[in-house]
């Protein structure tokens, strides 16, 4: 398995406040990697640095290319699809319009997204603001897929959703994993669900990557120490 995304000793700050002190991780092609850690440990900040939404130091490489100081839209065009924390659909656009606005050539089309999330197909003419939280999350994932990425980043994709909707989202992630053409970096708090889809895990503690390895190698001592569960 070759490294699609590589972070080496990445640091980042919000103004004078340093948030990342040295994060290193790797996501291979077709691999699902869980980025874990307690609240405020730098997971979302790490995602922002990957996507170029926050300036960083250190090395971030994607498909062999140094992301360096590339603007965020150019990073996204290289094949990184982001599902941001808090869903954040374009409220004034319909479901179909949200997906069309993001569309880039590739295997992911409106029809394919519709078959992954049939509810989106049913609500194609509905404004995003009128969707339920779960449907908005499906739309956010669908929108990221419409950019035809090679790496999908899911930042707290099931946060605040009803259990039945969470299952639907996880089923979709499992489906994407089985399809195999997509690498996924997933941030979530549900160890149980992550165990079903993730190949490997990276744990962040106070802005530093402190553990990485196969997900099934996560033992009680590690989860107790770094995740508090």
């Amino acid at each position: 398995m070759t490294g699609l995304l590589t972070l080496e000793n990445v640091t980042a700050s919000y103004g004078p406040v340093q948030a990342l002190f040295g994060v290193s991780l790797e996501v291979g092609e077709g691999e699902v990697v869980a980025l874990m850690g307690r609240n405020g440990m730098g997971k979302s900040t790490c995602v922002k640095t990957i996507c170029g939404l926050l300036p960083s130091a250190g090395t971030i490489r994607f498909s062999g290319q140094d992301l360096g100081r590339l603007p965020s839209h150019k990073i996204a065009r290289l094949g990184i699809g982001l599902v941001p924390e808090g869903r954040r659909c374009f409220a004034d656009l319909t479901v179909a319009e949200n997906l069309t606005a993001a569309a880039r050539p590739g295997s992911w089309t409106f029809e394919r997204v519709g078959s992954l999330f049939p509810r989106l197909k049913e609500r194609r003419h509905q404004k995003a603001r009128t969707l339920s939280g779960g449907e908005q999350q499906m739309l956010a994932i669908g929108r990221a897929l419409m950019t035809n990425p090679t790496l999908l980043i899911l930042d707290e994709a099931t946060e605040g959703l009803a259990p039945v909707v969470r299952l639907e989202i996880w089923a979709a992630v499992a489906h994407l994993r089985q399809a195999g053409a997509l690498s996924i970096l997933v941030i979530d708090k549900s160890l149980k669900e992550l165990a079903r889809v993730a190949d490997r895990a990276v744990i962040l503690e106070r802005g530093t990557s402190v553990w990485s390895g196969r997900f099934d190698a996560l033992d009680e001592q590690v989860t107790q120490t770094y995740l508090g569960v």
Binding site: C51, G52, H73, A76, P84, F90, L93, N98, A101, R104
Partner: peptide, 24 residues
């Protein structure tokens, strides 16, 4: 058109549009 929708989206959130690979 996709351009018009993306422009509308950029009005709502330039950052989200950037994350889709478009330059507001």
């Amino acid at each position: 058109s996709p351009f018009g929708l993306a422009l509308n989206a950029a009005r709502q959130s330039p950052d989200r549009v950037r994350a889709m690979g478009l330059d507001p």
